[in-house]
Design a protein around this nucleic acid. Structure first.
Lengths: 164, 164
DNA sequence: TATTGTTATACTCTATAACTATA
DNA sequence: TATAGTTATAGAGTATAACAATA
């Protein structure tokens, strides 16, 4: 059933893994050093800034693949830092509505240039425009395919599946 | 200095990020569920199995980008689980030589098929052979470029750099 | 003096389970 | 009964700094 990967598949998997690992490490360093933010915290702030309207915790969790308690914890930290607010939703009293503050937006703006610089230098430093296009096409297809998968083939066998 | 990324660059970055995030999540689930291993522990075991000779802690750390104390901690866990051994090197009394045990090899063998299955299904399920080749070429170039970089442009500015 | 590795420690992230409250 | 979210708690991963031993 499970057959070995071919040499090209191995090579691609390893290259992808190592490159992304290096990129993630650099990005995390930058966010921490310049904005005192973990990657997840940055994702939450960026999601809110991008949405340009308050989001519920559930909406946020959808974008940030995460356990709910984990998101609650991160939201608590961000709120304590004054970067977001949490208020009860008027429409559904169960829901919590999360909004980004001006300080939150400033923090994103403070961190974004460095973030972009890291990505441009590391990820795109060795790629032409058409390479970027090609890579985007490939990874978009991969991403769409993964989204469509029954959550996790291997994990669900063991009914050990926290999400979904 | 830091200019915005173009639309194609944004799209590619997000696609890459999300796809890899989904893949990592699935891989971690699988390794944990089927082998009770974290990803880093799997990397250590796989590195040792692949090297086919004992490695020093330093050699291991080179392959697994990691703080030394973190590697010591993981090695302690793997040793306690009977998957590796640590002994003083005869050549250099400072060095610790790490070897994989038969149980360690069995554990890798136990986990590998499921690991491969996840990668094949998720990463390669939507790619043709030539796509795999193309992706491998691109990511190999990206990886090589990243390896050659002064450790982390952003981080080193803040002299906050744990590696190198 | 520089290097190898460990220890002690502390902090962050993430998850589970139990819980409250609303729908 | 199901859903939204929080709390309490615990465990895993990672890092820093101080340290011992060897080169």
């Amino acid at each position: 059933m499970a057959e070995a990967l071919g040499p090209a598949q191995m090579r691609t998997y390893f290259a992808l893994t190592e490159a992304v690992s290096l990129l993630q490490y650099a990005v995390r360093q930058q966010l921490q050093a310049e904005g005192d933010l973990s990657y997840v915290q940055f994702e939450v702030l960026a999601t809110l800034a991008d949405a340009d309207r308050p989001l519920t915790m559930t909406e946020l969790a959808d974008g940030v693949v995460y356990s709910r308690s984990g998101l609650t914890h991160q939201a608590g930290l961000l709120e304590k830092a004054g970067l977001i607010t949490r208020t009860a939703s008027p429409h559904d009293q169960r829901a919590t509505v999360v909004d980004i503050t001006r300080a939150g937006r400033r923090r994103v703006e403070k961190v974004l240039p460095g973030h972009i610089e890291v990505v441009r230098d590391l990820l795109y430093g060795a790629l032409s425009d058409s390479d970027v296009q090609t890579l985007g096409d490939l990874m978009s297809r991969v991403r769409d395919h993964m989204r469509d998968r029954p959550p996790r083939s291997a994990a669900s066998r063991k009914q050990h599946n926290p999400l979904q």
